[in-house]
Each structure stands twice: as structure tokens, then as C-alpha cells.
Design a protein around this nucleic acid. Structure first.
Length: 285
DNA sequence: GCCCAGGGAATCG
DNA sequence: CGATTCCATGGG
């Protein structure tokens, strides 16, 4: 399964892993495409190449320690997606969405970066979100080989509203500062939150200005790896109405309830297949 | 409840 | 082509 060469980690026989699908399904913003089989990401303060070659996945530069400490969890490699997909595919609609992109996985991102990223994501589009996060990283993050790490809480607390505006955050500047301030003061402890149950995390995250239902659900899914979280954005709303509610307008609560009751503990994974399918096929337009 | 906030991409006329 | 719409949240 895993072998190590100098500066390389080589994975074989990994099921459900297509780097293009993983990165381009709306969950992650810090990546660059080289080719469909070669992407670069920055996460956990490191730049990493992911290269798909034949049936191998090559991670570089990396090593055994990095892999076990960071990337194993980041790529969610301990979860058996084949098994989960098999169950989800009993739903005929999901079957189609899953078969549209079998290689999707939920990335386990750093909670702080995830929180700030999804605050930025509100009322915004992916190319802009990527640009703003890049601006913030360049301005406040540490220089690393080939780019800039996402800033730590201490680094970002130096930011002012005016500076953040220059990073093109728009009206979200004050939301970012509120998040940073609450964390820095210890009013919110992102590590401690992980010990709480999902609804409790959500309640705490929503104390931050600019964090509503959608943003908190994303942080819970992508930052805390809680697969039962089902974020409803315009794409999910559209595709759910279109495919499950007879194309009728349906409120978010009803959609969330439907997901909880029909997709169960892996709703968040179902959400990602549905989002990807709707987003790339422009369903319901 | 309604409009606005900043910005660029997408879509419309 | 220019004009309008879109987007998630909170404040007025």
C-alpha cells in the first residue's frame, strides 16, 4: 500500500482517489493544477505535489513521518470509501452522482484555515475565494518553499480591517477579524471544539460573526471531519429540489432533514458527490 | 421582511 | 456589447 523513496511517498491500490476530483469539488481552495494527474497543494504549512501515474499516487516532497502525521489523515485514507459508496449507491440518484466522480474524498483541513476560508467563501465564487486566500497567505503567512503557508492565529491577529480589504475580502473583513479575535482571546478554542458533539460545535462556531449555518457546516465537515454534516448551498439546494423534491422550491431545513434521514452518518460525503455533479453539470438551470 | 455590503464571474438582453 | 444577476450573513 505505502512505500517510501527519497523525498517521496508512493501509494498503491488506493480506492476512490482522483486528485482532480478531490480538489475541484469545492471543498478546498489552495491548489494549483499542473495537469489533470498532477496538482500542487499547500496545507499544514507544507507544499505538496500529488502525481497520479499508472495505478500509483506519488506524494512529494514527503517522507514517512509527514505522511503518517499529516497526509494520511488529510486525504482521509483510513476511511473505506468503497464501502460507503456501495451503501450510498442504493439510492438511485446518488448512484448517478457518485458514478460521475468516483474519486472524490473529503479532505481533513486545518480548522483555522478552514474557518477563515469558508467565511471568505460566503456570497463568493471559487476563483475569487482562491485569490483572497492567496492574498492573505502572502501578506501574513510564513514563506515556505514554493509559496506561503496559511497564517496562524497569531500572525493573522496583526491584520487590520483596511489591510484585509486590500486582500479583496470585501465586507467579510470584519468577520475574519471577529473570528481571529475570539480565538486569540480564548473565547473559542478550535482544538477543544473537536471534543464536543457536532451540534455543540456548530453552536459555538456560530457565535462568530459571519458564521451562519452553511459556513459552520462546512467547517464541521472539512475541518473536523464530521461526515454527518450536510452543508446546503445554492448548488445543493438546486439539485436536491430538482432530483428529490419534484423540482419544487424547498427550504433548507427540509432538505437537511431529508439528507439526515436518507443519507445518514455519511450525508457529508453524499453532499460532496451531489455538489460536484450539480456544479459541473449545472443541474437545474 | 427588505435592502445593502465588495467584487468579479456568469448570464442576460 | 453593456446591464444585470449571483452569492451567505448580519446590520440598519
Amino acid at each position: 500500500m505505502v512505500s517510501y523513496e527519497k523525498n517521496k511517498v508512493i501509494l498503491r491500490n488506493i480506492n476512490s482517489f482522483k486528485i482532480k476530483e478531490i480538489l475541484e469539488c469545492g471543498q478546498c481552495f489552495r491548489f494549483d493544477r499542473v495537469t489533470d494527474c498532477h496538482y500542487k497543494i499547500i496545507a499544514y504549512g507544507k507544499k505538496l505535489n500529488i502525481l497520479e501515474e499508472n495505478n500509483k499516487i506519488i506524494l512529494f516532497p514527503s517522507n514517512k513521518n509527514d505522511f503518517e502525521k499529516i497526509w494520511l489523515t488529510y486525504f482521509d485514507l483510513n476511511l473505506n470509501y468503497n464501502e460507503i459508496k456501495k451503501n450510498l449507491k442504493e439510492d438511485k440518484v446518488l448512484k448517478k452522482a457518485i458514478e460521475y466522480a468516483e474519486g472524490i474524498r473529503i479532505l481533513r483541513q486545518e480548522p483555522f484555515e478552514c474557518l477563515i476560508s469558508f467565511i471568505i467563501s460566503q456570497n463568493n465564487r471559487i476563483p475569487m475565494i482562491k485569490k483572497v486566500i492567496e492574498n492573505i497567505s502572502e501578506k501574513y503567512g510564513k514563506k515556505i518553499e514554493g509559496g506561503f503557508a496559511f497564517p496562524t492565529v497569531d500572525e493573522l491577529k496583526k491584520a487590520t480591517v483596511d489591510e484585509l480589504r486590500q486582500c479583496k475580502t470585501g465586507f467579510r473583513d470584519k468577520y475574519i477579524l471577529d473570528a481571529v479575535t475570539k480565538i486569540q482571546r480564548g473565547e473559542i478554542d478550535l482544538d477543544e471544539l473537536n471534543k464536543l458533539d457536532t451540534m455543540e460545535i456548530k453552536k459555538r462556531l456560530m457565535e462568530i460573526k459571519g458564521v451562519g449555518t452553511k459556513v459552520s457546516d462546512c467547517v464541521i465537515l472539512f475541518g473536523y471531519g464530521r461526515k454527518e454534516s450536510f452543508p446546503v448551498d445554492v448548488w445543493i439546494k438546486k439539485i436536491m429540489e430538482y432530483l428529490y423534491f419534484d423540482k419544487k422550491a424547498t427550504d433548507n431545513k427540509t432538505i437537511e432533514k431529508y439528507a439526515r434521514e436518507n443519507f445518514g452518518v455519511h450525508s457529508g460525503i453524499a453532499q460532496q458527490y451531489l455538489f460536484n455533479y450539480a456544479f459541473h453539470e449545472k443541474i437545474g438551470k
